[in-house]
Nucleic acid binder design. Structure first.
Lengths: 231, 231
DNA sequence: AACGATAGAATCCTATAGGATTTAGACTAT
DNA sequence: ATAGTCTAAATCCTATAGGATTCTATCGTT
């Protein structure tokens, strides 16, 4: 009964997984814009696969809130959050992320600490060009920082709750245009959280996380005060 | 452009939706036990449909945590939470549900209040027999109470976070055997939350919710102290 | 008797085909 | 010109077929 089959050795992938990644990439890159239809047959033609794996990938994506499905009418990219919904999203983050921060702080390891520092370094050095592709690394580093904390909190249910928000957060980062003005502040705030972790100041880290998310909300509201729906 | 097609009139259903409901029912009823394999072809034969809608339904269910998928090996009912995981689940509920309670309390309406009271009434009058089927109404009323609060909190992201937990909570109710000893306490605690809502005591309602979930955890731990995996 | 190899069945995965539904455009009548 | 109807294309939805993989049981060897 020895685990000869290494746990993470050959994690087999099937076509639907690749399709899932591909569509997710398009959503996060901005190639698929809010409101766009995501045709099953059309996507299958584009990716040169049959509709079956596309259907399976979209069924999974629906649960993330990134795409919405109407029976017999197909899938659409979820509309962009209004300013009010953005505030609700930040409110939800303020509930979950400080708790994750506290839990992660209680079991912080040198490895996690190093990974967090790496993400901050990537955030600071990522190119910040005008195009989506050039911002990609920046957004990735930002998301990685928060995800690392959620994963190291050690509570799979709170991680699931965070995942229910993560995709929306990423989308908001992309379309709000906050990233540009947000960058320098975000780097400093991430670093403040990291330093509290490093010093073993668990409550301080949680407080800094609360402050960080609050600031993100404030900066976002300042940037796009009343732009409820673009289309 | 008039909405002649009434919004909620004929919400068309496709076969995959029925299959989804059917499998979910089996999971919640206990017909499908933790660890059981959920064969795509087999389920398709049982329900007398083709494998395609079964595949789509399972893809959606995977994201709820109720079933787990291994590439090229199929789906399995997720193993039952250990005592430690149960504690983590309650910890997550303690993070989310009091906040939802507070938000719901701030916009409480007579209609919602009546629905909450109805769920308590159903909880008190539900038969509590030995079989799964006889407990079904009790569990439904319990879940309805908590779901009403989450839905009326008005934050779709926190609702999504709650949904990420709800299925697990329901499963735990079913298999832990806590329900029996829990019933009289739970009814009283639900009523205490309701009365705080009715009196406009928002903070009191939130506090009572915290107390309720804490008590559920305590009673569950007392019932099954060290039963980690039953097989 | 225990271990490893092999054949068969069961299952998963993808592709294809056809019916059902929706959508878009053209045509006609008011 | 606008509203309504009708036709055709596109799309969704389900079923079926076949290849690829995994599981199970039998058999032979040490």
């Amino acid at each position: 009964m020895k685990p000869l089959t290494a746990p993470h050795a050959i994690s087999r992938q099937v076509l639907a997984d690749h399709v899932y990644d591909e569509i997710l990439e398009s959503l996060m890159d901005g190639r698929l814009m809010p409101g766009d239809a995501v045709s099953i047959d059309g996507t299958a033609r584009d990716l040169e696969v049959s509709p079956t794996p596309v259907r399976e990938a979209l069924a999974r994506l629906e649960h993330t809130g990134l795409v919405q499905r109407a029976a017999l009418k197909g899938y659409r990219v979820a509309p962009l959050s209004s300013a009010a919904e953005m505030a609700q999203l930040m409110e939800a983050r303020l509930v979950i992320e400080p708790v994750n921060t506290r839990l992660a702080g209680e079991v912080m390891t040198p490895e996690t600490l190093a990974a967090l520092e790496q993400s901050i370094h990537d955030l600071a050095t990522a190119p910040r060009g005008p195009s989506f592709a050039e911002f990609r690394d920046y957004f990735d580093a930002d998301e990685r920082f928060h995800r690392l904390i959620a994963e190291n909190a050690g509570n799979p249910f709170l991680l699931a709750a965070y995942n229910a928000l993560g995709g929306q957060v990423q989308r908001f980062r992309l379309f709000s245009g906050v990233g540009i003005t947000d960058a320098n502040f975000a780097i400093a705030e991430h670093r403040a959280i990291f330093e509290a972790f490093r010093d073993g100041d668990v409550e301080g880290a949680a407080a800094k996380m609360t402050e960080h998310v609050s600031n993100v909300r404030a900066r976002a509201m300042a940037d796009a005060p009343a732009e409820s729906s673009a289309e």
